[in-house]
Write a protein that binds this DNA or RNA. Structure first.
Length: 690
RNA sequence: GGCCGUGUAGCUCAACGGAUAGAGCAUCAGCCUUCUAAGCUGGUGGUUGUGGGUUCGAUUCCCGCCACGGUCACCA
């Protein structure tokens, strides 16, 4: 296939410049791009950068280079020069034979994956104390789509999930359930497992806050008693007279100052209004004093028991995590997400300890007097990083070092380890990769943090405390419902069995959601407005799905029509050797072919940039361009039976009509196939009808 | 405060350093006795946060400023 016309032009341009102007230019200085739609040609060569070699005007350079290329590349039909842009037109048959050749190339744009593991994509990575929300959806969709894209470019991809199943958060849920749950289970309550565990987490936090407030008030009271008279308290006076009355469990300087200010604010508020600030007014105090409550200690105690392997605690932990996994499974299934490998932090959290010890021996890390281990990154412009607490327990970073090493051991040929994790952890990964490098791992440079921006609401961040978190299941169900409604309103899918109808509606609703999220560049923050439902028109998933369904309908009809007439040339599955040499392609047709031509490059770009949005935006372009074609020229013959004429009124002979029909069907079929493949790269399915 | 990121139409998003900055939504006007109107055609809407610089050319690269966000834990 001669799809490499671009590199041919680049190569010959270089030799051309050498031949004509006797100058050897670096290949990077030849800039080729698509001709903008307002000009009638196919490929544009920007000559401005060349003029410093050719020492002539842009126009003249373009003119001469154009001649040179035209004389040597048979596919070039002609060219024109506008303001230093060399616009090159390719001959008709180039496009036709391109379409012809790639029609049978079922792998067009795809490279078959190798047999050995080459790339691991870690994504999703949920905590087990709460259900999934919109942020997780973005993470999952990006991770899944990226995996698809990387497989399409020849990688064997391992999709990995690292479940955070241990820690204080799940203990909070466990404690709350044990204390106030009265034996409630997903079965007894009908509540989805992850939701139920989340409910108890919220319950715990609620009570914790209440208890913290009590605690604070008792401290306040103490302060008030000591610091008389209250109405004379000024911010500057707080520190000695009042603050010292607080139990001196506060140790760090940083917090000490912060909390002093917070107390000052609280007391002044009390002084002025007769009450202490609520949590909304001064979150800091509450956050800080949580750890001095009995509830917090109880949860902490539970964590200790868990770490000691206490049987009843482990039993409860397993039970509640299992509820959560069942719940997650449902959500994953709806999202079409699966993993090749699931890691659990309860199994990995101790990894990395030996590596830390080794690092100390190799003087990569420092052990301080209190026993804590640090990595000094100040030479790299970063801070010191803790790797092991003074009590010998490890922190998150330690675990990440351990799991990374473990994974490269497990999959020796691995070329890349990609972490799909939110941008708030950029610093963490920067440090992690740097430490891995310092430890001397050869693969340290193969780790990559795919950092994505968070999903914001119009008012800003989602906040669980304010109840603005968009629940994943709720959102999915809403999408389905909107889809059902829209389908009904439009009178679509009538006469189709309910079961099939439902499955199509879901496909569309899910397509709308996925496309909405994936069309945005991962690294950018995006805004989701829960009050306005996601559109089904315009630049949306359903629009592209619709285009696909339309094409399938067209092809079905074409099959029928062929059966009736019986004498049409091979359409879908055959081929005509002479196709493409007499037919004059029209602009609406060529625009679609040109986009098809771009498909392999688009996949490559998406893979290089780790960016599914590249695919999404291309899909929209293609669907749009196809619809334009579809609406402008007829594909199938009119009901009377004669074949469709080319240009209105300019009907050619019968052979040409047949050729045109064949060509347009092939163009439609190819577009449909590419839409399907491309949408699958986004994890979106396309319906045969809608 | 240090570091990182973002800023494009009323809103949501595009634009390998290239031509007059593009789409969709919203809004206005048209198109179903030819293949699915979840579609198509056209109108309205911009000093690309701001001020400099680099060059044939800057939304894109560099610097200053402004705004917003993230991050700087013996949290994960």
């Amino acid at each position: 296939m001669d799809a490499d016309i671009k590199s041919k032009i680049i190569e010959l341009s270089i030799t051309g410049i050498k031949d004509i102007w006797n100058f050897e230019v670096p290949s990077g200085s030849i800039i080729i791009q698509k001709t903008r739609p307002e000009f009638t040609s196919d490929i544009t060569l920007v000559v401005f950068p060349l003029t410093k070699f050719t020492k002539t005007s842009p126009d003249k350079t373009a003119q001469q280079l154009g001649e040179y290329l035209k004389n040597r590349i048979p596919e070039i039909e002609g060219f024109n020069v506008i303001k230093g842009f060399l616009n090159i037109s390719l001959i008709n048959s180039f496009w036709i034979s391109f379409l012809h050749d790639m029609y049978d190339d079922t792998r067009f744009g795809f490279t078959p994956p190798g047999s050995s593991a080459s790339v691991m994509v870690e994504f999703s990575s949920p905590n087990t104390n709460k259900p999934l929300h919109l942020g997780h959806i973005r993470n999952n969709l990006i991770g899944n789509s990226l995996s698809e894209i990387l497989s399409a470019t020849g990688n064997k991809v391992i999709k990995a999930n690292l479940v955070n199943d241990r820690g204080i958060h799940i203990c909070k849920s466990m404690y709350a359930w044990k204390e106030w749950g009265a034996g409630e289970t997903p079965e007894s309550s009908g509540i989805k497992g992850d939701k139920l565990v989340g409910k108890y987490y919220v319950e715990f936090e609620k009570r914790l806050i209440a208890q913290t407030k009590e605690k604070i008030i008792s401290i306040y009271t103490q302060i008030i008693k000591q610091a008389t008279p209250i109405n004379e308290i000024k911010k500057e006076d707080i520190k000695l007279a009042t603050f010292d009355a607080i139990p001196r469990t506060i140790e760090t300087d940083y917090d000490y100052n912060e909390i002093k200010d917070a107390f000052a604010r609280a007391l002044i508020t009390y002084n002025q209004t007769g009450r202490f600030p609520s949590i909304e007014e001064d979150k800091f105090i509450i956050e800080y004093f949580k750890k001095y409550t009995s509830l917090f200690n109880d949860a902490q105690e539970m964590l200790r028991k868990w770490e000691d392997g206490d049987e009843t605690t482990i039993f409860l932990w397993k039970k509640m995590n299992d509820w959560v996994y069942k719940g997650f499974e449902t959500t994953y299934r709806e999202l079409g997400i699966s993993f090749d490998k699931t890691y659990y932090e309860s199994e990995t959290y101790l990894l990395g300890k030996e590596i830390v010890d080794e690092g100390v021996r190799k003087n990569v890390f420092i052990r301080k007097e209190d026993g804590s281990v640090w990595c000094d990154l100040t030479d790299d412009g970063l801070d010191e990083k803790l790797l092991q607490r003074s009590d010998g327990t490890s922190v998150y970073m330690t675990q990440d070092i351990g799991t990374a090493a473990e994974r490269f051991k497990e999959f020796p040929g691995m070329k890349k380890l990609i972490y799909v994790v939110g941008s708030e952890q950029e610093y963490h990964f920067k440090v992690l990769f740097l430490i891995l490098k310092k430890l001397g791992y050869s693969w340290a440079g193969d780790c990559h943090h795919l950092s994505y921006g968070m999903v914001d609401l119009p008012e800003g961040k989602m906040k669980s405390r304010e109840g603005t978190v968009v629940d994943a299941d709720d959102l999915i169900e809403e999408m389905y419902e909107t889809s059902r409604q829209t389908t009904k309103e439009l009178g679509k899918l009538e006469g189709i069995p309910d079961k099939e109808k439902e499955s199509i509606c879901r496909m569309i609703g899910m397509g709308a959601l996925k496309y909405f999220i994936l069309k945005v560049d991962p690294k950018k923050r995006m805004v989701f407005n829960p009050k306005e439902s996601i559109d089904f028109e315009g630049n949306t998933g359903p629009f592209i799905q619709y285009t696909y369904a339309r094409i399938q309908s067209l092809l079905r009809k074409a099959g029928d029509w062929r059966k009736v007439t019986g004498d049409l040339p091979a359409g879908r599955h055959g081929r005509r050797q002479d196709t493409g040499n007499t037919l004059k392609i029209q602009p609406v047709e060529k625009n679609v072919i040109k986009l098809i031509f771009d498909f392999p490059g688009v996949i490559r770009q998406a893979a290089d940039e780790f960016n599914p949005a590249v695919i999404a935006n291309y899909m929209y372009e293609l669907a749009k361009e196809f619809n334009h074609f579809y609406q402008t020229v007829p594909v199938l013959p009119a009901k009377g039976g004669s074949l469709p004429a080319g240009q209105a009124g300019a009907s050619g002979g019968k052979a040409e009509d047949e050729e045109r029909l064949n060509f347009r069907l092939r163009l439609s079929d190819t577009t449909g196939k590419i839409i399907k493949k491309g949408m699958n790269l986004l994890g979106i399915n396309v319906p045969e009808k809608m």
